[in-house]
Nucleic acid binder design. Structure first.
Ligand SMILES: [Mn+2]
Ligand SMILES: [Mn+2]
Ligand SMILES: [Zn+2]
Ligand SMILES: [Zn+2]
Lengths: 142, 142
DNA sequence: CAATAGTTTAGAATGATTATAATATAAATT
DNA sequence: AATTTATATTATAATCATTCTAAACTATTG
């Protein structure tokens, strides 16, 4: 539950001007109790529903990518045609419900620490992500 | 190192007619000692280089998707704009080298078993995949 | 209040993937 | 082995999410 002036600082601190559009997008994304997952399309619909002045799709793309670059969003790719953004930027894993197409955060009492015994020589690990796909029992599994 | 007649059976057994094009693609993908990762683009280039008669891009897409549906290939999605296919269809995890854009298979002495303590109620796990992104030590990490 | 740098926008361009529908091939049937 | 039927391939067009362009707009600075 951040307020407008906090978004202004947040944007200024990252070298982004606090424009009307960016503040509106901040409000939609970050002015909540819980983090959530969304697609660009979800966000565009959400904004057009809850904002009288329209924000162009190019700006929505630009802003989401800027926020991702600044580390305010993470991108989670499920398949070649499904990409989600996540307002939860802490390290965490996901369940993906193939029936509902919903991403669900895992916490530590759901997936234990991944044990990486050997890394590639000369490389540093930049992220470790687990994706657990789930579906109804009686549905076709692949 | 399978031979042509084995590919013919394999295709027939899955209800796919053993056409010239599909057999050529089988040869390129499965007539090897080691499994590997490829993009559609890689495969198309490979075929045009090693085959005198061209296979249309539509057929390459169709065949790769048919093979994936039949379980002869797995798809590994790295980001919204990078999708790989894998001829290793066993359960395994991956390192992704952000410097070289190369996918590398993990074996059990690199990543231990993922401990899933609680699953979503009423759902069955259809896959568990770990992706470890790595990059050079001195490179920008995100 | 300029001047400047950064931002938004509508619309065009891109490019990977998929659809179309005519032609070709494989399999099944006579 | 000729005919019929089902399936596959192909060139090409269509789709559509994303990115690009460049003109208009806005926030910031002096
Ligand atoms: Mn695909
Ligand atoms: Mn993107
Ligand atoms: Zn999440
Ligand atoms: Zn692999």
């Amino acid at each position: 539950m951040l307020k407008n002036s906090e978004f202004v600082s947040k944007l200024r601190n990252s070298g982004l001007r606090p424009t009307k559009q960016r503040l509106k997008i901040c409000e939609v994304l970050f002015n909540r109790d819980k983090t959530f997952h969304f697609t660009i399309n979800d966000l565009a619909k959400n904004i057009s529903k809850n904002f009288n002045k329209k924000i162009s799709l190019a700006t929505i793309y630009n802003t989401v990518h800027a926020f991702k670059d600044k580390g305010y969003l993470k991108e989670i790719t499920i398949s070649s045609d499904k990409s989600y953004f996540d307002t939860n930027i802490t390290k965490h894993h996901h369940f993906y419900d193939e029936d509902t197409n919903l991403l669900i955060d895992c916490n530590d009492n759901e997936i234990g620490k991944v044990n990486i015994k050997n890394n590639i020589t000369g490389k540093k690990i930049s992220s470790v992500e687990v994706l657990v796909r789930v579906a109804s029992d009686y549905q076709n599994q692949n």
